[in-house]
């Protein structure tokens, strides 16, 4: 699962949806892998406004990546390329969580990630 995807996921439990604690989910015991993905600056530029930047900073910090800037880079910075674009590309598109868990900060439920696929099916008492 790409870190880009994680930026769009919150807890699957309905009662958690209204809580700000349910997003982003927190990786636990995460095993990461890095895929070699062809850079696509246009895609990055367009995706940027759809990201929750502060959640992405949280995720990056929790996984031990270098700190991201406090505010998202501007489209101009992205067009210029350079290290920011490369870092973002690596972080969002190439980095995968292959094994581990994703934990909701609201209810504490842990979702398993196995072989790169996160499973959000809930036990019956949480549906």
């Amino acid at each position: 699962m790409k870190l880009l995807t994680l930026n769009f996921l919150s807890c699957a439990v309905k009662t958690c949806k209204t809580s700000p604690l349910s997003f982003p989910l927190h990786p636990k015991d995460a095993e990461l892998a890095k895929d070699d993905v062809e850079p696509n600056p246009d895609l990055l530029t367009n995706i940027l406004p759809r990201l929750d930047w502060s959640a992405l900073r949280t995720t990056a910090a929790e996984l031990g990546f270098p700190d991201l800037p406090e505010t998202a880079p501007s489209p101009e910075e992205l067009v210029e390329g350079g290290k920011t674009v490369q870092d973002l590309h690596e972080l969002l598109m190439e980095t995968q969580i292959v094994e581990g868990k994703l934990v909701c900060g609201c209810c504490g439920h842990e979702y398993a990630v196995r072989e790169g696929i996160a499973n959000f099916l809930l036990p019956s008492h949480l549906v």
């Binding site: 696509n40 979702y111 099916l121």
Partner: peptide
């Protein structure tokens, strides 16, 4: 088998309990 599509991702979820955040996608 490490190669992954750069333009999609997949996960397991129930359509009645979707894990996507509110108003996140286009």
């Amino acid at each position: 088998q490490g190669g992954r599509s750069s333009t999609s991702d997949v996960l397991v979820a129930d359509g009645l309990s979707l894990p996507f955040r509110n108003e996140g996608v286009d």
